[in-house]
Design a protein around this nucleic acid. Structure first.
Lengths: 232, 232
DNA sequence: GATACGACTTGATATTTATCAATAATGGAG
DNA sequence: CTCCATTATTGATAAATATCAAGTCGTATC
């Protein structure tokens, strides 16, 4: 990888505590690459050759079966994906594709596993990252099992509102098709869920959403500390 | 903990590779206890004081929100639970209760975290266990998002059939209420799903299920290597 | 500015799943 | 063994969600 990018990478949670020596060794073997939108980076079932980090842009993780497709997560900077498969030296359980122009750091799986054994600070960083990923999925799983489609949408809007500075207006981070897939519903249903939320002060104008009755929306959404980032 | 139990514990995947010294230190602080059925061991939202291992019996992990309850997983010997919360020193995202008379090993979270830093073999065992847990949840999440209730039941039956030695007869490992919750449906729906599977050779008699048309059932279930333990 | 394309919305309908109610079966406790 | 409480099944109905089919809207292209 190009030297000029190293300081930027070094700041990532995963590498911050790593020894200089191991960091250099890992980065020697890594690639930092720019991809356009809609590029398939990994395919479920393939062997885990690389660990991926999203440095810029966005990657959609999805899975398929019986001709159906489900969006599992959207990874934004600075997030990693398929760490578990890399650690286990197993096959990917999900596919990943860029949803926009993205900058991706690819690290050969073997280097990750080697450094894990050599560098206990890195091992701690890896296990922390993996625990974070695990807890995120658990939360998504709870979200899906315990809430209706409208409730999931309401909470997602509150999450974006929180992320974007609580201005009363939010910008959807992806198109509605993808948002629907992420929330586990069809695009038609998402449209209807927005209509259902109208009495709760939710006004849609393209990808821009206005929230004018936070209290009402929160009453409906019932955000939960053990599911939502925006709760509390 | 009592000395006589140590050799038994030492064999667990998580402790097999640990140094003698660290193992002794961890076990010094651990409790091995017997619980009757229906005892709540952990409650979601509580701080992660202990890592739990199911030595005998069975623990149901579940979560609640808005008065609804969802079963997240059933942990059988020798499985651990809430490892991620222990690692992160965070709050439990799930509650756990015994579903039958069980023998549980409880290890103070701090000892786990300390040993993780001191013993790189243990660190590797922990990260491997965590990666396994992560991949299991991903599979459950895919199962829920990509399949209908009947398909989920069909695959679960195939899984039990595989686990129990492919004899054509399986014994349900928990009562149907719990099985329904685990599969993400109501008990009424589970009953109806069994009726739906009748033309595929599935005969129900209490907790004993006979499978007489494996080919048909498999055609319906479409087991998948990247979701199911029993596939392939 | 006209056109064409894709994304989004809306309506009608079908499917899936949940709820409510009643009854039947099961399994412990005494 | 009998009684009781829980669990399981079945039927009727309702709610949630998906599907199919038009339409609308916006926008990028020419």
């Amino acid at each position: 990888m190009r030297l000029e990018n190293l300081p930027e990478i070094r700041k990532f949670k995963l590498f911050k505590t790593m020894s200089e020596e191991n960091f250099d060794a890992v980065m020697q073997a890594a690639y930092l690459q720019n991809f356009p939108a809609q590029v398939r980076l990994v395919t479920e079932g393939d062997e885990a050759d690389f660990l991926f980090l999203v440095v810029e842009g966005c990657v959609e993780l999805f899975a398929t079966a019986n001709g159906r497709e489900a969006t599992m997560a959207m990874i934004k900077p600075v997030g990693s994906f398929i760490l578990a498969a890399v650690i286990k030296d197993a096959r990917y359980l999900m596919s990943g594709r860029t949803t926009e122009k993205s900058r991706i750091l690819m690290i050969p799986a073997k280097n990750i596993r080697d450094s894990f054994e050599k560098d206990s600070a890195f091992a701690l960083a890896v296990v922390t990252e993996l625990a974070d990923c695990y807890r995120s999925v658990i939360k998504e799983y709870k979200n899906l099992k315990l809430r209706t489609a409208v409730e999931r949408l309401a909470n997602r809007l509150l999450e974006y509102h929180c992320e974007q500075g609580e201005t009363g207006v939010i910008e959807l981070p992806y198109d509605k098709k993808r948002l629907a897939a992420l929330l586990g519903m069809t695009p038609e249903n998402l449209s209807r869920a927005f209509v259902t939320l109208k009495p709760y002060g939710v006004t849609v104008s393209g990808s821009s959403i206005t929230l004018s009755d936070m209290k009402g929306l929160i009453t409906l959404a019932k955000p939960n500390l053990l599911i939502d980032r925006h709760a509390g």
